[in-house]
Amino acid sequence: MADITETPVAASARRAPIRMPERWFAWALVAPAMLFIAVIVAWPLAETFRLSFTDARLGGESFVGTKNYTDLLGSSRFHDTIVRTFFWMFVSVSLKLVLGLIGATLLNAAVPGRALFRILVMPPWVIPIAIGCIGWLWLYNGHFGLLSGVAQRIGLIDGPYEFLAYKTSAFYSAVVTDVWVGTPMVTLFFLAAMQGVPRDLYEAAYVDGASRWYRFRRITIPQIMPVIVSMALLSAIWTFNSFEVIWILTEGGPRGATTTLIVDTYKVAIGNYKFGEGAARAVVIVVLLAIFSLIYLYFLGKVNRHYGSGK
């Protein structure tokens, strides 16, 4: 008994001298990661913010105050770009979510060869985007492309049609390719969520006479709703910042039809060497995405409360 009462005292007495070094050791462990974040994230962010108040070019820079921002606010072209970016994001994310949901539902169904289909979903996500986009460039080609060729064969069009040469078709062609790239991951996330729904819930509903559609609507969707909302947010941010697809297919053209904020920023900052103006655009992107994310997170909390089990 005497030993037991003495032990904690003895232990704390032993521990006391190493308490400070332990704390320093902990800092030492996280220091490389913190240094990495400081160099790769924090410093560029701060530098971008600083640059946005300058007219930095290749030849030098000088402080211009809020001129870059006031120019952007007064530019109708920039307003169009913002609207186009949100429209691009809305169309692409909506399609990814709907197709992902349909795909996950099919892959979750007890059909023969399900494992094979699950593997076949992966390639668009697994192969490098550049290679996938080059494939799509060929598909969209008016003279040698599959789509134009098939459309001509079945009599939909009279002659070669360059999908990427016209404003509307170029925009939606880029959307299709972006959806092709982004849907597999959405599908797999939804599939994983669906597989986590307890089988008993479906059986109980089946015994109660609920149809497939009713079970999907009242059990599957509510049960995976937090994942749907989370994926919508992530997918929206990725799509908002989607650069490779647009750049490889159209470089933002024709006549700016596929120029989103991120493409515009690249063109200004890297293409025209207007680092200050480009930085202002980048800051606008960060602010817009931050506002967008906060609104989304607010709704995510509401969704979790609504669809949660009350725990």
């Binding site: 008993d200 089946y206 015994v207």
Partner: peptide
């Protein structure tokens, strides 16, 4: 179909809809 059998079932896990 279970509905036409006139049965109802209580499951081991309760099978309550958490949402």
């Amino acid at each position: 179909h279970p509905l036409d059998r006139g049965i109802s079932m209580v499951f081991q896990s309760y099978a309550l809809y958490p949402h």
